[in-house]
Amino acid sequence: MSFSGVLSQLLEIVIAIALAPLLSGWVNQWRAWLQNRSAPGLLQPYRMLHKLFNKESMVADHASSLFRMAPYLKFGCMVLACSIIPTLSTDLPLAPAADTIALVGLFALARVFISLAAMDIGTAFGSMGARREMLVGFLAEPALLTVLFSASLISKSTSLTTIVETLAHRDFAIYPGMAFAAVAFLMVSLAENARVPIDNPATHLELTMLHEALLLEYSGRHLALLEWAASLKLFAYSCIGLALFFPWGIAEARAPAAMLLALPALLFKLGVGGFLVAVWETVNAKMRIFRVPEFLATAFLLAVLGMLVQLLLAR
């Protein structure tokens, strides 16, 4: 564990925590512009978080401690996730603690706790939201894992840093299986981050919502932490996508100076990605909830197919 490693690890965590709301703000701004609305400022998510933190938390009379614990736990999970995904550098002392399988497990842990917390109050919306969240989760999780397996088969490793180093810094090669994986990953990350066409982040209509239904009973600092965690999740998924499919620019372990270049590269890639998400959300409509399993099953099967193509062409 070198000094530069610790430094890049800390820098990465700080940047993730600080930039995640900015990414949400950026997507929201572009979406508003593309839909001919006047947009909230880029810093609106920060103002929102500040306001929520200032407010008093209202908690239902019969809420158990699980309910109050869950926001902190989800926040912790997301920060840890962001800290093991190579966003700026592959020289991360924390990264060996969790490979891709553990990363997916980490997302699952957060999902299980937040679903349990939603069921804790015992309102109709909460339990419905928990059920839908788990429905999306149980299909999205294996799909995400399979996408990551495709990358693992290339680099013969499930460690994210090794995958990125293989994809970015060895001889440039085209991996056709990754085309399938990319499509599947896109579908999964839209579903996991409650984006169109699975969920509409702009509505609060109770019959269609997914993400909002889980947070319905939260307020004040708990809500702030959950919103922050949601933007961290978006950030984490974007970074996984960038690391798998556009890994160029991430600094290697032996070149700490390259981190100076890595940050602008990351910002640029995230900016473009956020814009594309906004375009996607503008031109597409939300689908019926009954179609969601089909959508995610398609993603899962595409990921499996990617793995097969990878195996066929690798020989």
Binding site: F53, E56, M58, V59, Y72, F75, G76, R221, L225
Partner: peptide, 28 residues
Amino acid sequence: GILGCFALAYVVVRLLYHGRLRRGPAWA
């Protein structure tokens, strides 16, 4: 890692803001 972030978030929120909590009926 998880517990560290958990504890840090807990402490920082209380230091920078407050820890006030009010109980009431569920909102639903």
